[in-house]
């Protein structure tokens, strides 16, 4: 079992002919993802990595319907591409694009909500159900099946942590990247709910960072609703206030979004908190009760 996606999920690649789009199409195919085609306006009839290219999402869906789509579309055009996917009936939309205007993200979330489409990102590395389906840009080799569910705001940091886990013989059910922007679709609580229901997930790792209040809200949810153990790591302990640490959302403003407030909330929710990223595997083992 896994959450959101599995080996039968059919996936479309929007922006498949670009440098990033074609590179990651090859990677996703190598992982075993069931890709059914891609889009690139004006390039219908071309073939990328053996997959048919269409002008529009509607055209692609007529040829073979897909449940999910991944967006490699430049920021100024991403809102239009997201609207197109949602309108054409895509139910899971993964937005890799970085630097999408905040108000465009608000518009995307509103339309997706009305149409019942789940949005992952923007500015995410995507999600992967280990051994089944990868819709994202993470390196293939770390995502081996196992009992750990992972949800993260940050890409490379989650690669590092999942890499540490797999080195320690701990595989994953599903790994979800929420995205580093201020407004993102799936949040910690949405993903925690799914992990709680998923029979294959025995422990959840939450990778957060400074800025916003998502970790605090997640802590309250964990305390009230999670029976499965949760291990957390939060990045940004040393970050000064008022400075944007790479991610648009990673900023301490007006005394809110601090490291201390997140750690306190997690401790109150009885979450095991790793002080350093490489401590995560041992805390996961402890939580699994075989340390």
């Amino acid at each position: 079992m896994a959450i959101y996606i599995n080996k039968s999920t059919r996936v479309l690649v929007q922006g498949i002919t670009g440098r990033q789009g074609s590179f990651h199409t090859a990677q996703m195919l190598a992982y075993g993802t069931r890709l059914v085609g891609g889009t690139s306006p004006g390039k219908s009839g071309q073939v990328v990595e053996g997959l048919p290219v269409y002008d529009t999402v509607f055209e692609a869906m007529e040829a073979e319907p897909a449940e999910a789509s991944i967006l490699f579309i430049p920021a100024p055009f991403a809102r239009d591409a997201a609207y197109e996917a949602i309108d054409a009936g895509i139910k899971l939309l993964v937005v890799i694009t970085e630097g999408i205007p905040l108000h465009d993200a608000l518009d995307i979330m509103d339309y997706a909500h009305r149409e019942g489409t789940v949005v992952v990102g923007p500015n995410t590395f995507g999600l992967v159900s280990s051994g089944q389906c990868k819709i994202g840009i993470m390196p293939n080799r770390f995502y081996v099946p196992g009992p750990v569910g992972v949800v993260s705001r940050s890409g490379t940091l989650s690669y590092e942590i999942v890499g540490n886990l797999s080195d320690a013989g701990l595989g994953t059910t599903t790994v979800v990247g929420m995205g580093g922007d201020r407004v993102v679709g799936l949040g910690f609580i949405d993903v925690l709910k799914e992990f709680e229901k998923d029979p294959a997930t025995e422990v959840v790792v939450l990778v957060g960072e400074i800025g916003g209040s998502a970790e605090e809200e997640a802590s309250r949810f964990i305390a009230a609703h999670m029976s499965k153990p949760v291990v957390a790591y939060i990045a940004g302990k040393s970050a000064p206030p008022g400075k944007r640490m790479g991610h648009a959302g990673a900023i301490i403003e007006g005394g809110r979004g601090t490291f201390a407030s997140k750690i306190e909330a997690l401790h109150e929710a009885k979450v095991r908190v790793a002080e350093l990223p490489f401590e995560v595997p041992s805390l996961v083992r402890e939580a699994l009760g075989n340390s």
Binding site: S154, T156, L157, G180, E209, A235, K237, A250, L276
Partner: peptide, 17 residues
């Protein structure tokens, strides 16, 4: 210098640690 915002932040935290 690192590649990725999260891992860069985590690296700074470890330097301080």
């Amino acid at each position: 210098m690192a590649n990725g915002a999260g891992i860069t932040m985590a690296t700074l935290d470890m330097v301080q640690h």
